[in-house]
């Protein structure tokens, strides 16, 4: 009783900090508070997960660190709030968090009815298939007659049905209550119930790590649905939306122009006008956003360009080993494209 009463009184008295949403207030609120509050997932391999030291790591986490670097020149000035799929948008709407970097798919209804904005796409995900190498299948189009395992109650069943119907192929869908059950049945291969396992590409690579012999399995190149994942912000504060959008574009541009955490210092002397505008040695792009001239230098030096972040967290330098695929730069056949900074 006493404990509760005291805690109640002190809690109301001391712990302020939630700012309400209003136009142009987000950046000021963050700067006044001294740190960014970023909503992440409660644990998704490669996107946001605590490492052995208890630090958050992942693609979504690094995006928030990039924002903190741009605003404060300090990647440590960000507080991560792990959110479940159910409470993520409510947390953003109620002003509990400044930005939601939680592998959320950009859809029209979320953009409009929920009152959110999706300023950028940081990861092009989509549904794919994983099969045993021993099946000697190299394309999803060869899966006719296969039994396919997945988690029930998601759109994956629907997407697979559409895909197989569109290509005039037969298949048998085996749906499980949880992903863990599905992947276990696929792994043990009991009674040949699962020839293939399907979920989103990033999830396939993550689930592959749970298999007894991950090297015996391959993710097929076909992507049969669109799941553009990106950060979300509240409607109504365009300055903050711009900062979030251009932070991603700056990281993509940096990769495109060959500016990485290793080369950024040398690049400051580059005569290339595009590099000079990006790094703020020419023009005042950063100041137009309400940041400083060297905002991109801060981001790239402390977090890296888009390619570095991708490879470190989900790509070839990580245990997941996701292929760049649609997330390659537009110059290399991918979809990552940044409008010019000028």
């Amino acid at each position: 009783m006493h404990w509760l009463a005291v805690v109640l009184a002190l809690g109301i008295a001391c712990c302020g900090g939630v700012s309400t949403a209003s136009a142009q207030a987000t950046l000021k609120g963050i700067q006044g508070r001294g740190h960014l509050i970023c909503g992440v997932s409660q644990g998704l391999p490669g996107f946001s997960a605590p490492n052995d030291k208890g630090e958050w790591t992942g693609l979504d986490v690094d995006f928030c660190r990039a924002l903190a670097a741009a605003i404060f020149n300090d990647t440590a000035k960000v507080t991560f709030v792990p959110l479940s799929a159910k409470d993520r948008f409510t947390a953003l709407q109620s002003g509990d968090i400044d930005v939601l970097a939680r592998n959320s798919t950009w859809t029209l209804s979320r953009d409009t009815a929920l009152g959110l904005d999706f300023p950028a796409i940081t990861f092009y995900d989509g549904q794919g298939f994983m099969v045993r190498k021993s099946l000697k299948v190299s394309s999803a189009l060869e899966l006719s007659g296969a039994s396919i395992c997945t988690q029930t109650g998601t759109t994956t069943e629907l997407n697979a049905a559409d895909y197989f119907h569109a290509h005039n192929m037969t298949y048998e869908m085996v749906a499980f209550a949880t992903n863990d059950e599905a992947i276990k049945t696929y792994d043990t291969g009991e009674n040949g119930r699962c020839d293939a396992f399907t979920t989103d590409i990033a999830g396939l690579y993550a689930e592959r790590l749970k298999l007894a012999n991950p090297a015996d399995h391959v993710v097929l190149p076909e992507v049969i649905s669109k799941e553009p994942l990106g950060p979300a912000v509240r409607h109504g504060d365009d300055q903050w939306t711009d900062i979030v959008r251009w932070t991603h574009f700056a990281m993509v541009s940096a990769e495109e122009l060959g500016v990485s955490s290793a080369t950024v210092d040398a690049m400051l002397k580059s005569p290339n006008p595009e590099v000079r505008r990006l790094l703020g040695t020419e023009g005042n792009a950063g100041e137009q956003l309400g940041l400083t001239k060297d905002w991109v230098v801060r981001i790239v030096k402390q977090v890296g360009n888009y390619g570095e972040v991708f490879e470190r967290n989900v790509g070839k330098d990580s245990r997941l080993g996701v292929a760049r695929g649609q997330n390659a730069l537009w110059t290399k056949g991918g979809l990552q494209y940044a409008p010019p900074i000028r």
């Binding site: 409660q42 644990g43 998704l44 391999p45 605590p50 052995d52 792990p82 993550a206 245990r319």
Partner: peptide
């Protein structure tokens, strides 16, 4: 969004460094 014992465990599962059967 409060991580109790089980929540912390679930977060630990998401660490690719330890994903195994």
């Amino acid at each position: 969004a409060i991580f109790d014992l089980l929540g912390q465990l679930r977060a630990a599962f998401a660490d690719p460094s330890w994903a195994s059967p």
